Lab assay of single mutants.
Amino acid sequence: MAAGGDHGSPDSYRSPLASRYASPEMCFVFSDRYKFRTWRQLWLWLAEAEQTLGLPITDEQIQEMKSNLENIDFKMAAEEEKRLRHDVMAHVHTFGHCCPKAAGIIHLGATSCYVGDNTDLIILRNALDLLLPKLARVISRLADFAKERASLPTLGFTHFQPAQLTTVGKRCCLWIQDLCMDLQNLKRVRDDLRFRGVKGTTGTQASFLQLFEGDDHKVEQLDKMVTEKAGFKRAFIITGQTYTRKVDIEVLSVLASLGASVHKICTDIRLLANLKEMEEPFEKQQIGSSAMPYKRNPMRSERCCSLARHLMTLVMDPLQTASVQWFERTLDDSANRRICLAEAFLTADTILNTLQNISEGLVVYPKVIERRIRQELPFMATENIIMAMVKAGGSRQDCHEKIRVLSQQAASVVKQEGGDNDLIERIQVDAYFSPIHSQLDHLLDPSSFTGRASQQVQRFLEEEVYPLLKPYESVMKVKAELCL
């Protein structure tokens, strides 16, 4: 049975990233139509530049190519590739079939990587351009969430054990800070992308030097003109047959890092959902379990974690691919890159769409948070109580021993009897502590235990987050809708 299948058929496997999760716009960027249309555009740009620099290419040939950029006979191309065992030459023939007058000058002087690699770089750039505003929107939604809850005390956790208090907004800023680093890295790697350009079979530009009869300047002009037509500021000066596969490492490393950030955020949300302090959106008709109707599973956060793990592992592909590119190139890269580049971007696209949807509907339960604080705060307040007693004339050592005994009794009630923490009640009825009984409410005010959390939130948002989001103001209103 021949390899390949009808990918629109229910009898043929289709990647869930495309069929179930990723956005239509990201799927289109990695589609065959987008790819092969870009090949034709690159052939047109090459012909236009070659004509401008004096090669015998007519206006009629150029116009014929322009008129057929979208006229792609995919069936013919597939048949040609089956016959020739070469995808680029299959599309040269297919393009030439609908451009008979231009057929002889299509791909003039070029090698397969002229269309293959340059198209990949265009796709990487455009895919990054799709991700950047999506990530900015996630940051914006979380920034709104953090600002609104900047002063809401909550129990902090280290080692997932109760620690000092923080605020809900401050905790959210930990998430935002990681995503801001990801946004900066995505922008950097996007701006650092260079075009492969017009380089020939081993990167020496020998074929173009021959076409222009040894004119170095025209060869350099050709490279520059096509690079500018493709919208790049610069091209690699040095290439082998391909652009260095280190570029793929750079791009997928940034995406993998984004995956790590999203995994951490969504894990926190899942843990908070278990504590009943916070939940992701839950639709009115949504079913959490087929057997347990009360369940409210954090399905979206779980999906993000599941896909983020996949995204983090994909960076190993370009690392290994770059390491086995012998001399000017081997074909070890080809099949692998067809999979890992598309999957990385479709996965990143999915987790950003999902995280935006989550961040637009996060639900906080202040009463649950308050109750958990009441359970733990008495123990945390013991040092403040000791200091207040010393100020009232008591002995630190005597007070410490009193607190120690009462704390152990209260802990026994919590752990052995399943009761509430009654340390404060014990202190309130103990005559030894009568000098500070009137101060206990103040000493137990949760806001006095959150330090500068709310001020940190305000400063972080104003100095770091809002300036970073400013270039994306025009796209901030787009909502994230999930079908599944």
Rank of each mutant, 00 (worst) to 15 (best):
G8T: 11
A22Q: 09
S23K: 00
E25Y: 13
S31G: 08
R37Q: 13
T38S: 09
T38R: 11
W39A: 13
L42M: 00
L44Q: 12
Q51R: 07
P56E: 02
I57V: 09
T58L: 07
I62Y: 01
I72D: 08
F74W: 10
K75A: 06
E81V: 02
L84V: 10
H86L: 04
D87F: 05
T94H: 00
C98R: 07
C99G: 04
I106N: 05
A110H: 08
D117M: 04
D120F: 07
L131M: 08
P133W: 05
V138L: 13
L142V: 02
D144N: 06
D144C: 13
L152W: 04
G156A: 04
G156K: 06
L165W: 15
T166M: 03
G169I: 04
R190D: 13
G197L: 08
G197H: 02
G203R: 04
T204L: 04
G214C: 00
H217I: 14
L222I: 12
D223M: 06
K224Y: 14
M225A: 04
F232L: 13
R234P: 01
F236R: 10
A256E: 15
L258T: 08
A260T: 00
A260Y: 09
K264W: 04
K264P: 08
I265H: 14
N274V: 06
M278K: 02
E283R: 05
Q286P: 04
G288W: 06
M292T: 03
M292C: 07
R296I: 00
M299F: 13
R300C: 00
M312A: 14
L314P: 09
M316L: 07
T330P: 11
A335F: 00
N336I: 10
R338Q: 09
L355K: 01
Q356C: 07
Y365Q: 09
V368Y: 11
I369W: 07
I373A: 11
I385W: 08
I386P: 07
I386Y: 04
I386R: 08
A388S: 01
M389N: 00
K402R: 13
I403K: 02
L406K: 12
Q409S: 05
D422N: 10
I424C: 10
I424L: 09
E425G: 11
R426I: 14
D430N: 02
Y432E: 01
L440R: 05
L444E: 02
V457N: 14
V457C: 14
E464M: 08
M476G: 15
